[in-house]
Write a protein that binds this DNA or RNA. Structure first.
Lengths: 340, 340
DNA sequence: ATATTCAACTTAAACGATTAAGTAAAACGG
DNA sequence: CCGTTTTACTTAATCGTTTAAGTTGAATAT
């Protein structure tokens, strides 16, 4: 039904004025009479006029569209609990400011299409990057372009970033675990190819050293993020040590289910026999029993801040200074770490 | 760095041919010499030419962009476990076909902006709708427009739809539960304002009637989807009945954690003392112990099928007949329903 | 040899908006 | 009353593409 789109020309015909006048009237320029404006606005409304984004973008070089690069190996960041919340918050703030969100991809359709070329093709006003392999040259190409970019949970020095304060969060959790009396603390961490992992791991060693807690090499093992199976295996390894830890920190909340299963399978009660901690603060962590001890990352703040900063950058590419912002998480003590 | 975008004009200058020739060469028209084409392509490559989406869209009236309407009350469908997987699959298939994905919203920025006006503004080639209030007049306006639309998990008769076969899934699960020996089966369902809920609920009654299982009124209670707290409360109500059920079916996997918690709190073992079933097949359902009995919805198929059908519709709006497709799920027997 | 077809281009208009520059009439100033 | 400013428009160019409709010279047909 409602296909025939109404253009400025239709309004200009209906009102007996030029197209330019209509355009200016609708954009509230000063050199159009108040009564004319009113009339034009009314007619535009009646005809159901909507501007044409493509035409506007072509002329003004502004699309009011932000490119989102969220690429997991397996999936897009979409199905990722933590990042989907960040993205949701980003989207909300962006939309409040009149921006839409489109996913960036390097579609295999155009064989030599890159993230950057896709972004240029769509003419994104800005780009947000999260949940990708930040060592991908395509990502660096995009970051180094003249398109305003904000990265989430990774820092390039020529590019604005918003990061969850993993150091602070990890430290706080470790202090809590320490204060609960634990001295045999194990850490299952992901591969060290992200700054998040690197930060947390360094913090793990540093904090425990400060606390004078020694960490046997065999207490530090690896498992990918969100991989319950691998975390299960890693946990088994830890629990079967001749001198097993009293507390295991998992890569994230989701993977901690692997740890929990391993413990249960060995007949260990949580937290009486073995303490378990996660990281992220996904909703489910609060819904299981015992409630998971974790650090709740402030996804809402991360997303909205990233959007605000990106929009500031878009509005003033030269004048906005590049910041590297940290967003604090909060320890949720939960019930899965025992007080010894 | 890489800002100055290269246009057809730049190529035409570099090659000493007209802009039209360049355009046709790059679009592989037949009336351009093979060697000229080759040369133009080479120069385009060298200069790093990328077409301008806005200009193309303006001229051809095709954006290669699909609008996605995924709106939860609380959030967008992004943080929704089931829908985020559907969306992810949709996105993948769309991108394989050269389409990008942009979220539709009725931003409060333009006071009288609707979903439809937003879609028209962006010139989406098509629209996919899921996870919304389908009784919202704005949704109906969009569906009734001349823009190709596919709805997911809801059926309008003038609009293509892809639905998860909830009837079949529910029926299969009920038969399984019945075959396990259960005759006192309770159902916590969501509010009946979606066809999904309506379908499952009707199926619940019908199937049990066929099986000659009577359902006391107090066995059917409500709790919203994905709400562990409300499902906890509902479960408590059920478990405290003087004649409690032996099996509780929850609105979905996520909310079943509320039920599980309620049971555990009452000192009931799962599944020995009380059986619990969910719906959806979220990954975590397989990761907890006991593994949750549930119906795994085929999110991959749902998403890709929706994308395929929408693209077919886009390519041939008149000629494509409107289908209402069902995608079967699969029972995952899990371990949370006991064999009596 | 001349008419006709064909291949390989170019010209020019168009898509729907924005905006600098131009213009005509009204308002103002002295 | 005439010159200047102001107001309220219009004209026309432009953004980067696409494409229908020429144009030209060479190949083919008769």
């Amino acid at each position: 039904m409602t296909r025939k789109t109404v253009s400025l020309k239709d309004i200009s015909n209906a009102c007996g004025v030029s197209v330019a006048t209509v355009s200016k009237a609708l954009n509230d320029h000063h050199d159009i009479g108040e009564d004319t404006k009113e009339h034009i606005r009314k007619v535009a409304e009646e005809l159901g006029y909507r501007p044409n984004a493509a035409a506007q973008a072509l002329k003004t070089n502004k699309t009011y569209n932000i490119g989102v690069l969220f690429v997991d190996e397996a999936h897009s960041g979409l199905t990722h609990d933590y990042f989907s919340h960040v993205l949701d918050s980003f989207k909300t703030t962006a939309e409040e400011n009149g921006y839409d969100i489109t996913f960036i991809n390097s579609s295999k359709r155009n064989e030599n299409s890159t993230y950057l070329s896709h972004a240029l093709y769509r003419g994104f006003d800005g780009v947000v990057i999260a949940c990708v392999d930040f060592y991908d040259p395509q990502v660096y190409e995009l970051v180094s372009s003249s398109i305003p970019v904000v990265t989430i949970d990774h820092m390039f020095d020529n590019c604005m970033s918003v990061q969850s304060d993993n150091i602070k969060g990890m430290k706080e959790m470790l202090h809590y675990i320490y204060d609960c009396g634990h001295r045999k603390i194990a850490y299952i961490h992901a591969h060290e190819n992200t700054s998040v992992t690197q930060g947390r791991l360094a913090c793990f060693y540093n904090t425990l050293q400060e606390l004078n807690v020694s960490v046997p090499d065999e207490y530090v093992v690896t498992a990918p993020y969100r991989n319950t199976d691998k975390t299960y295996e890693a946990s088994m390894k830890l629990l079967n040590l001749e001198n097993p830890p009293t507390c295991i920190i998992c890569p994230d909340d989701f993977s901690s289910f692997g740890c929990i299963n391993a413990a249960r399978e060995m007949g260990l009660r949580i937290p009486e026999d073995i303490s378990v901690a996660g990281y992220d603060g996904i909703e489910l962590a609060r819904r299981i029993s015992p409630r998971l001890t974790t650090v709740v990352q402030d996804t809402k703040k991360l997303g909205s801040l990233a959007a605000e900063k990106l929009i500031a950058l878009i509005n003033n590419p030269k004048g906005t200074l590049i910041e590297h912002l940290l967003v604090e998480g909060q320890l949720d003590e939960g019930e899965s770490v025992s007080k010894l």
